[in-house]
């Protein structure tokens, strides 16, 4: 079910609070804000920034958390997802963090959110004008796997020298017969900067092209911020004879029967039984509330309060 926006019950902005609004100090926020504006001015370019220690380890979304902290205000409605799901540990923790330190209403409803922080997915529901999507990025440099030296990748971006990336895709085709790699598929922003879309499945890449929302990317450990403004061309790299294509499934979602969403495969037992369900939990719940039912709707696994079938 889509929960309505909820106001946190803890009055985190009371006089007794011993930290600044939205956790970061004002000067850090200004530094991040300047980086965001430059990132929007040079779409796809990775702006270095002074990443701070956050109350979670690197790899748990420190880049995204710092971006959110720099932009969030009490009027925002905040949604946080991890692998598409609102109810996973990391998403719940980060959502609770901002409800506490920034006095914001939180929601699971994609349409009601003004800021959506995400690890590894873009929601199925199309993003809208006025929304800001914040991505947590482990490795901002799309070329890092091909060239370990930062000095070299900087130069490659400076001169738009992306031949190595195309060679890598070509080697994929010669080895596997297709462009392999399902997530973090490289994109070209406004036909200039090569960008890693963060490890979202390539299924989500087309959603970024001419998207009405602002897309912000933050890598805390690697200390980089980059952005895609609304209505910006985002092209997934491909070849004329090997065009870009996204994942597809023979099954529909086992719970909501969606045929157009990104599906996770869930192994059910050791008898080779499995199910495919929407990775976007809000999308799936919304559809089920509308009466859509997949082949396993009503299955015990669909109910959290019951033990899985043996």
């Amino acid at each position: 079910m889509t929960a309505p926006p909820t106001t946190p019950n803890a009055p985190a902005n009371s006089e007794e609070r011993y930290y600044n609004y939205a956790y970061l100090d004002e000067q850090t926020k200004r530094m991040i804000r300047r980086a965001i504006l430059k990132a929007l001015a040079v779409p796809g370019y990775q702006v270095p920034f002074g990443s701070r220690e956050m109350p979670v380890p690197y790899g748990w979304g420190t880049g995204g958390i710092q971006l959110t902290a720099a932009i969030i205000g009490p009027d925002d409605v905040y949604k946080c997802i991890d692998q598409g799901a609102d109810d996973t540990t990391n998403a719940v923790s980060i959502r609770r963090f901002f409800a506490t330190v920034a006095d914001v209403a939180t929601t699971e409803d994609t349409g009601a959110a003004t800021i959506i922080q995400s690890r590894h997915r873009i929601p199925e529901r199309p993003l809208e004008d006025g929304q800001v999507m914040v991505f947590q990025v482990p490795q901002p440099e799309p070329l890092r796997g091909l060239e370990p030296r930062e000095t070299e990748t900087r130069a490659m971006h400076a001169y738009a020298e992306y031949g190595l990336q195309y060679v890598s895709l070509y080697e994929n085709i010669s080895a596997f017969g297709r462009i392999a790699g399902g997530a973090g598929y490289p994109v070209l922003i406004d036909e200039r900067y090569l960008m890693s879309p963060s490890p979202i499945p390539k299924f989500d890449n087309p959603k970024m092209d001419m998207c009405p929302a602002i897309l912000l990317f933050g890598a805390g450990r690697e200390k980089r911020i980059y952005a895609v403004p609304p209505y910006t061309r985002v092209r997934s790299l491909d070849f004329e004879d090997y065009p870009f294509e996204v994942q597809s499934w023979e099954q529909c979602c086992a719970l909501c029967a969606a045929t157009d969403s990104y599906l996770d495969e869930v192994v059910l037992d050791d008898q080779n039984n499995r199910m495919f369900v929407c990775s976007d939990s809000n999308h799936c719940a919304t559809r089920r509330a509308q009466g859509h039912a997949g082949p396993m709707a009503g299955h015990s696994l669909a109910h959290l309060d019951e033990e899985p079938a043996q």
Partner: peptide
């Protein structure tokens, strides 16, 4: 609060 609101407008 005010710098946040101003920044969001500028962003």
């Amino acid at each position: 609060r005010e710098s946040q609101a101003a920044f969001r407008a500028i962003m």
